[in-house]
Design a protein around this nucleic acid. Sequence first.
DNA 1: AGGCAGGCTTTTA
DNA 2: TAAAAGCCTGCC
Length: 275
Amino acid sequence: MLLTVTDDFSPEKIHASGQCFHWEQTGPDAWRILHAGHCVRFRAQGDGVFSFSCGEEEFRSVWAPYLDLDEEYAAIRRRIDPRTDPFLWAAAESERGIRILRQDFWETLVTFIISQNRNIPAIRRSVELLCALCGEARTDDSGEPYRTFPPPESVAALSNEALNSCKLGYRAAYVRAAAEAVASGRIRGEDLRSADCEEAVQTLMQIRGVGRKVASCVALFGLHQLDAFPRDVWISRVLEEAYPDGYPFGRYSPYNGVCQQYLFAYRRHLEAPSA
DNA sequence: AGGCAGGCTTTTA
DNA sequence: TAAAAGCCTGCC
C-alpha cells in the first residue's frame, strides 16, 4: 500500500537516531522493519510517498501506530523559538524528520540494558544472537527468514551458559533480572505507559542494572512517555556547552524527550559530521 | 545525603 | 589502547 506523509518523517534520521536496533537498510531508499512479531518492507518514492509491502489493514493496526503517525512533529518543532533558544532550533532544523517510534516495552527494556557501555554494532549483534537463540523463526512476505524478539518467559528460562553466548558480558545478569521482573508481572508495561513519567522511571530503576539513563530511554522509546529526557554523555555536553544557566525543561514539557532527540543527534553530528 | 573512583565484558577504530 | 546512548559497589 502507499503512504503519503506531509509531517516530518525521515527513515534515515530515525534509523540513525539510535532508538531502534531492528531496522535494516536494504537499499538506497529501502528499509525493513521488525516489530512485535511483524515484518514490513518499505521504499521511498519521493514527494513524501512511501510504498509498504503490507496491506491497508496491517498498516492501520500495526505500522501507523508504530510510526506514531497521529502525532504532528512539525507542531512540536514550532514550539521552539529561534530567538530565545537558537541552539535547540538549529538542532531541530538539522534533525527534522526524527519521530519517536512506539516500540515494544519489553524489547526496548532489554535492548537498552544491553546498550550500556557499548556501541551500536555491538548492541545489534547481541540482540540478533538473542533472537537467534530463542526467538521464533518466521518468513516475511518476500520469502526472507527473520526471527522475532523472544518474550520474557523465554529469556528467563535460558541457562546462564545460553545467555552468555549472546556476548552480554556482565549485562547478562541484568537481562535475566529484567526478564524475571516482566515475566512475573512485577513490572507491567501497560501500567507504566499510563503512569506519571517520573514514576515510570523510578519503577524501572528498581530493576537491577537499570539506572536513570536506561530507565529514561525505556520510558521514552518503549512507553512513549514523550517527556522523558535521557541524559547521557552527549546530552551532558550540550547542557554544559549551550545551556550554562540551565535548560528550560518547563518550556518544552510534555515534549522534552522529542527535543532531547534533536539535541542528541545534532551534537553527535557536530562531533563527527559524517556519522 | 550525595559525589566520586574503580571495575565490569566485548567490540571497534 | 581508548572509547563506546552506564551501572554497581565501596568509600568518603
